[in-house]
Amino acid sequence: MTWQRTIGGPTVMIRVDGKPVEAAAHDTVATALLAAGHRHFGTNAKTGRPLAPACLIGICFGCLCTVDGRPGSQACLEPVRDGLVVETGGGNE
């Protein structure tokens, strides 16, 4: 695991690719995925290579996921909440 959580606090449960994942209540979808050990978020439609977040502030588009059915969501801008459904592995077109 590359990232470790150092700040505690309340948690919520989200579903990522069908599996339950615990997230901090103040996480974005992107930080929740990083904390859960997700190394890749999506795929570059042009090169076919895996994408992962670089900026985490809405600039780089490396964190695109489907969030609650909405494709192409910037995971770094989406706050988590109980029951949120995330699908990774999509393209970035």
Binding site: T2, Q4, T6, A24, T31, A32, I57
Partner: peptide, 12 residues
């Protein structure tokens, strides 16, 4: 940002 948002630090 990962530190501030999720309290996440890189630590292997």
């Amino acid at each position: 940002t990962a530190m501030k948002q999720g309290g996440l630090v890189p630590k292997t």
